[in-house]
Amino acid sequence: MTTVDTPASAPPAADGDGRSRTGDRAPRREVGVVNVFSHGFLLIWALLTTLPLVWMFVSSFKSDMEILSDPWGLPGALRFENWARAWTEAQIGRYFLNSGIVVAGSLALTMLFGATAAYVFARYEFPFRRFFYYLFIGGMMFPVFLALVPLYGVVGSLGLLQTWTGLILVYAAYSLPFTVFFLTAFFRTLPTAVAEAALIDGCGPFRLFFRVMLPMARPGLISVAIFNFLSQWNQFILPQVLMQEDRSKWVLAQGLTALAVSQGYQGDFSGLFAGLTLAMLPVLAVYVVFQRQIQTGLTAGQLK
């Protein structure tokens, strides 16, 4: 196997059955074939993933004529007026702001309630602890559709239909199962010695939580916050049911579907592509910057 030390000079994949040989007999040959082979497939999938996104971005600069005549063509000019039209006329700008307001509120509430409940489950023994814990995490398994009709009634009877407050409370409530599940596991991994030392020093239980335990749990809090941010930002069915009527309060996902519908009537393809691009770019930009945290944040929940 020492021959593989300089595989840069490995011959290209000329031999079709190189793969069937064992590594010991023809290591170089296999390296070349597998490398070309694996890079080929990986590249194809990378293209499949990016091509639709790039196409949408490029199309957002085209005129409707250009979109209709040639799907592969390039725009004749950088028509930022498409973007401006989507931002103001289709009100993508306003829906952005609305989504921001709702998610800011619901995320703060989710994190506060999720962290306090998880902390109690992880660190205290009390009657019916297991019952309450399973009550919380059981929510991860239920299809939201089952709750939609009664939820509409509950929110309505509180007078919270078509309000951001209603949406914030509901988002937070539906994010709690996963948040509690994840953070309980996380609080359990934290060492108890620090907490005991703080208590001996006369630290009260509330201060202990906010000053000692929360800072120690920061990595877990960040992961679950990223997860919740994305799922609440992308939430669609809950606002669709609870916020259908008041157009001015819609969130971004609703605004985009409305744009798609009106585009169908007016044939304003460029406006739709511009709206979708506007909604996509900030999320992608944030993702590219924080890719490591986001990838681990989203996958960590499933590995636990």
Binding site: V120, A147, A172
Partner: peptide, 23 residues
């Protein structure tokens, strides 16, 4: 501490998740 920390999340969750599911 248990009551202050657990009751508000429990109320929120009970009202908007458990109660609708049961109904």
């Amino acid at each position: 501490l248990i009551i202050t920390f657990l009751l508000p999340p429990l109320l929120l969750y009970g009202m908007f998740v458990i109660w609708p599911y049961l109904q």
